[in-house]
Design a protein around this nucleic acid. Structure first.
Length: 495
RNA sequence: GGCGGCGUACCCAAGUGGCUAAGGGAGAGGUCUGCAAAACCUUUAUGCAGCGGUUCAAAUCCGCUCGCCGCCUCCA
């Protein structure tokens, strides 16, 4: 398995520290507002990475934090006239509501920053003792100059950064590049006691404290959005490695951004969509599929057109599942076989061989794609190749017991691959019921079946005009009818 | 100014040295159907921003040019 490592700027063979075990940490969110789909992308990417590692047989310990104390939370509390911890609690709850719907699993440990103040103080103390940090007036700063490898993740040269002139001006710092480990609190702000007076932790120190506590001083994977590379992750490395004297995370994984009109989606630009806004118009599986249809490191342009295409793709999957489920049972198969002529059987047998070959290599192709830096886009391509092969096979009218077996195997493989990506986990009925709600189809299932019965009567009388009127009427409401041999099925129009 | 990324068909998107450049959508034609829908088949890049170079061989490596974007400040 190869993973692209931001630290080395290349794909590397993944070898965990302890064979068979993977320790991974991903930066979560600051709980001060509703999440937007950029947060969804990051959460889904690391959710899939975790699922795939488990699928490969690794024993994974996954830690994802919540930042529950920070300037933005304090500001929000003032705006809303509630306490900072009420803000954190509210948006943690909303985070779970969104992520649960998107099928993002819970991490094994989900620490809140404020539960680790003691650990953070210990690390800051240790850094001062080792000469990597200094206190000024109740604030503690990390001495960037002392850490010679500073810039190794973001590939930045300290001198050039200062020349870039966009560094914050803070008179108390000995060097403009130094960053806060501990901040003295102002009047009325949340604070904790420390050896340097009352204050609160700087942003980066929480991840150092929580990852070391739960995963050890050195661990395998650390991830987050690409915008965290600098300064957040760079600073984490500096303070962690200065403190422990050991290499911190070994593989750094960063996901790309979502763009709107080619520009990064961000809160400050105001060009963002919250997860719940999008969930209002699209099924969660559609969003997940859409986000996985591009490689995790590439930017994704967010658009309704793309989401509609994702919806159509998923519908193609469920339509194929319906066809597999409709495949005649054993009884019908044997009757067909009695009737079937020799030629038909030979055709079937060729089709069987073809499908069988495809099935035998599917898992390998899926895993090859995922092994190559979690290439979900390619993996989905393989899934749709298999879907086409299954449909082709069904079109060849393969009436045999072997055919039944092959189809059931195909269904199993699709479902297995789907479970790694956490898509395709529902029944077609569930899919259409969900679409009925999201697309606000103003009909009940009873309404639809009544119409289908009416139309069936008309068709019996060969009153095609009437039958077509009913079909059209339903279509205008977003319901498509499909006439089969012995009955009529309905589905929700997609796209 | 410094660092980094991207540019593949009408749209989205894999592919980063070597069989006929995945997959999805859209379009056109066809098979099937009372008509449809779905599905399948055929078709849509002799070419991967442009130019030049390395190589037996490049979308894939190197150089230059053009265009777009990101980071350097909170940010997934």
């Amino acid at each position: 398995m190869r993973i692209y490592n931001t630290l080395t700027n290349r794909k590397e063979e993944f070898i965990p520290l302890t064979s068979g075990k993977v320790m991974m940490y991903a930066c979560g969110v600051t709980v001060y507002d509703y999440c937007h789909i950029g947060h969804a992308r990051s959460a889904i990417v690391f959710d899939v990475i975790r699922r795939y590692l488990k699928h490969k047989g690794f024993d994974v310990k996954y830690v994802r934090n919540f930042t529950d104390i920070d300037d933005k939370i304090i500001n929000k509390a003032q705006q809303e006239g509630i306490t900072w911890d009420a803000v954190a609690k509210k948006y943690t709850y909303e985070y779970y509501r969104d992520m649960d719907r998107l099928g993002v699993g819970r991490a094994d440990v989900e620490p809140m920053a404020t539960e680790y103040i003691g650990e953070m103080i210990d690390i800051v103390k240790g850094l001062i003792d080792k000469g990597y940090a200094y206190e000024v007036d109740g604030n503690v700063y990390f001495k960037v100059d002392k850490f010679s490898e500073y810039g190794k993740l973001s590939k930045r040269d300290k001198e050039e950064m200062i020349a870039g002139a966009r560094v914050e001006v803070d008179e108390r710092k000995k060097d403009p590049m130094d960053f806060a480990l501990w901040k003295r609190s102002k009047e009325g702000e949340p604070s904790w006691d420390s050896p340097w007076g009352t204050g609160r932790p700087g942003w980066h120190i929480e991840c150092t404290a929580m990852s070391i506590k739960h995963l050890g001083e050195s661990f395998d994977i650390h991830g987050g959005g690409a915008d965290l590379i600098f300064p957040h992750h760079e600073n984490e490395i500096a303070q962690s490695e200065a403190f422990t004297g050991k290499p911190f995370a070994r593989y750094w994984i960063h996901n790309g951004f979502i763009t709107i009109d080619k520009e990064k989606m961000s809160k400050s630009l105001g060009n963002f969509f919250t997860i719940r806004e999008v969930l209002d118009k699209f099924d969660p599986e559609v969003i997940r599929f859409f986000l996985l249809s591009t490689h995790y490191r590439s930017p994704i342009e967010f658009s309704d057109i793309q989401l509609h295409e994702a919806e159509i793709s998923i519908d193609r999957y469920y339509t194929t599942i319906i066809r597999i489920n409709d495949f005649p049972g054993t009884l019908m198969v044997s009757t067909s076989l009695e009737k079937g002529d020799k030629e038909l059987r030979e055709v079937s047998s060729n089709a069987e061989k073809t499908l069988e070959t495809v099935l035998l290599s599917f898992r390998e192709r899926f895993e090859d794609a995922m092994d190559d830096d979690f290439n979900t886009a390619l993996a989905l391509g393989h899934i749709f190749e298999l879907i086409r092969d299954v449909n082709r096979f069904l079109d060849s009218k393969p009436y045999s017991l072997k055919a039944k077996e092959l189809l059931s195997k195909a269904k199993g493989l699709l479902s297995e691959a789907g479970s790694v990506l956490n898509i395709f986990s529902r029944t077609p009925d569930e899919w259409y019921r969900s679409l009925m709600e999201i697309k606000k189809i103003g009909l009940s299932e009873k309404d639809i079946s009544d119409k289908i019965n009416q139309r069936q009567d008309a068709r019996q009388k060969k009153d095609w005009a009437m039958a077509d009127v009913i079909r059209k009427e339903l279509e205008e409401k977003g319901i498509i009818l499909e006439d089969k041999k012995d009955r009529t099925e309905w589905k929700v129009k997609v796209g």
